[in-house]
Amino acid sequence: MGWYEKKDKPAIPSEKELWAVCPKCNSHFPKAEWKAAGAICPKCNYHGRLGARARIAATADKDTFEELFAGISYSDHLSFSDATGPYVKKVEATIAKLGEKEAVVTGFCEIMSHPVALGVMDFAFMGGSLGTGTGEKIARLCEEAVRARRPLVLFSASGGARMHEGILSLMQMAKTSAAIARLKEAGLPYISVLTDPTTGGVSASYAMLGDINISEPRALIGFAGRRVIENTIRQKLPADFQSAEYLEKHGFIDRIVERSDMRRFIAKMLEYWGF
């Protein structure tokens, strides 16, 4: 859940209600100031998480977004249940709260008058986890992009595969990657935007397959979790390990783009490629 989006309002506002805390540099800001800054830390320039709808509003030309595959949702093919109860209960509560049926919103839109197929993941939906519905929407978006000959722009934000959907969630990594291979073969470009955080099975599938992979300042990007790695190698990792900046330095991110420059940058790349 986005920590800056909590909506419950007790009679006496708590510390948490009044203050936003940057998870990267720990600076405290009055909530209003954080909101005014567009969830971007005034101190360290960390680009905070955006919900799918807010991201679409910030990315698409006004009134151009037409949603596709909005009816596709999760599937509980394992009848999965854990210590805290059935998956169905948890995911239905998320759906009721967020008003989204899956961890990705897909559709067509224009970005500075360039027609694109746009997918935006929402970390607030079960940690942006990749379930069968998520994978299905992304695969269909690729196929629809091929039919309409539109470039693909995908904003990722995910903790990885949705384990409540078991092996079939793992298979979505292969399914989406295969759909992206077809899009590229059809001569269409794919711009992948890895936002905070993009890890696990999502980083190890479509998010890392962009013709260009771009990110936002200080986003967390990686395959394995920091603690798992530290426990495995028995060493402390550098503070900036798995940051967008670290990945750019190691050659896996083409460019770190400020949110305020995102539309221009995407449009410019599409223009270079003739889209």
């Binding site: 291979a181 190890a204 479509y206 890392m208 395959f223 394995a224 979790g225 050659g251």
Partner: peptide
């Protein structure tokens, strides 16, 4: 599972797996 190591991440563990999925698909 794939190795969770510092150099594995620095050399692109996520990218290598992603590429492999894309590669074998066609």
């Amino acid at each position: 599972g794939a190795y969770p190591g510092r150099e594995a991440e620095e050399r692109g563990q996520a990218e290598a797996i992603a590429k492999s999925l894309e590669f074998f698909s066609d």
